[in-house]
Design a binder for these strands. Structure first.
Lengths: 120, 120
DNA sequence: TCTACAGTGAACCATATGGTTCACTATCAG
DNA sequence: CTGATAGTGAACCATATGGTTCACTGTAGA
């Protein structure tokens, strides 16, 4: 899938900002308005609105405006794809490093054997 | 930790580019030179060098130059922190949505009961 | 030694990002 | 109706990003 890659792009990009990760943590505790978030992160309303839009774009947050206040909550996307990507690569990493470990172990054993052979 | 946040910043930023994720997958298969990678991703040497530097900066890749060729391999960092962050928030997500599910279930039951009461 | 090759660094470019201010709309409370 | 409040959008700004070209260094091979 092509879109899959675009999705990872936008999500990881969304997560690469401290403020936005902070907003997610905040929303994990309770829903909040733009004003709430703007205050908590010492930022203008406009600035926070942008961050929220980016999170919304990435599907990590959903918002609903009732009256004049827009309430933000955690979105439906639960980072499955991202977790999957990272997990997959952690396994790759591990596999490669395990192979390296084995090689090292093998060399150690060989070295030991050689040393013993030499001693005889 | 303050540095912890900076680290997440740089790692997620590193992962937010298709090319760089591609390089990681590539290196998961086998080590490669800058030239190899540049060719595979249709890019100039200079361009690829930049990507590799970013990945190296994030600790996801290590490189060693022997002779005139610089060989790139997967780095020591295995995305533990990032996986942890995501997992933590997936749990948060889940907790909140589970609570929502329960609420919905509760309302459903209540509705059903009300309907029955009315029918009598 | 001569030539080709791998990488590097500086300069440059277009576009994206993270933030602001300012002017505006819409809603709430009295 | 009026004033304060919440959000929005356009314009602007500085800096970062992803890429290029070009000139350069260092190494490998014939």
């Amino acid at each position: 899938m092509v879109h899959y890659q675009v999705r990872l792009d936008t999500t990881f990009a969304a997560l690469s900002d401290v403020t936005r990760r902070g907003v997610l943590e905040q929303l994990g505790g309770s829903d909040a308005s733009i004003t709430d978030l703007a205050q908590r992160f010492h930022m203008t309303l406009t600035g926070m609105k942008k961050h929220v839009s980016i999170l919304e774009q990435a599907g990590l947050v959903t918002t609903e405006k009732v009256g004049r206040v827009r309430t933000c909550k955690l979105g439906q996307r639960r980072l499955e794809e991202e977790a999957a990507w990272i997990e997959q690569h952690r396994q790759l990493w591990s596999a490669r490093f395990d192979a390296l470990d084995e090689l090292v172990e093998h060399l150690k054993r060989k070295e030991k054997a050689d040393a013993q052979r030499k001693r005889r």
